[in-house]
């Protein structure tokens, strides 16, 4: 089962390679990984998506926590959370498909970020399922290139 894991780490050189080295060394899977500074410049937040049975996920969180530079590990699956991913898709745009592409992008609340005589580059954000839906719809029109960021996630604030 897929899990989104959020890791707060010390913003120091080599920390990312400790995390990725742990995954490769122990044969764990990384499907996507996103990392950037937090509000505190000494701390980075890393969001990764991994796949495995509960026992594996338990080992992953424990092993991550064991790294000296790791501050906090949260398996987002245990919480209510929001997740977003961003994609830029370059799609073939010819006279007869331009309007259709714009309609699709509009429906999914995306926008065109680059235009050339034969293509559009469109930007979309959302959950992974939403992005997959856009990709599936644009594919028959002719996708030339895709770049995805990987998922980021944040736990929802308590309602009371």
């Amino acid at each position: 089962m897929k899990h989104t894991i959020s890791v707060l780490l010390q913003n120091k050189p080599g920390v990312l390679s400790r995390v990725t080295g742990l995954f490769s060394g122990r044969g764990f899977n990384i499907e996507s990984l996103c990392v950037a500074q937090t509000l505190d410049p000494e701390v980075s937040c890393l969001t990764l998506v991994t796949d495995g049975e509960d026992k594996i996920i338990e080992q992953i969180t424990k092993q991550l926590h064991k790294l000296i530079d790791v501050i906090k590990v949260t398996d987002m699956g245990e919480l209510d959370y929001v997740e977003r991913e961003m994609v830029i898709i370059r799609v073939k745009a010819e006279a007869e498909t331009r309007a259709e592409i714009l309609r699709v992008v509009d429906i999914f609340r995306g926008k065109v970020v680059d235009v050339s005589p034969k293509s559009y580059a469109v930007e979309l954000t959302g959950s992974s399922t939403k992005l997959q839906a856009v990709i599936d719809i644009l594919r028959p029109i002719g996708i030339q290139e895709i770049v995805r960021t990987g998922k980021i996630a944040m736990a929802r604030a308590k309602k009371v």
Partner: peptide, 8 residues
């Protein structure tokens, strides 16, 4: 003392 050893 090492949680990773438990249940591994």
């Amino acid at each position: 003392i090492d949680p990773t050893s438990i249940g591994k």
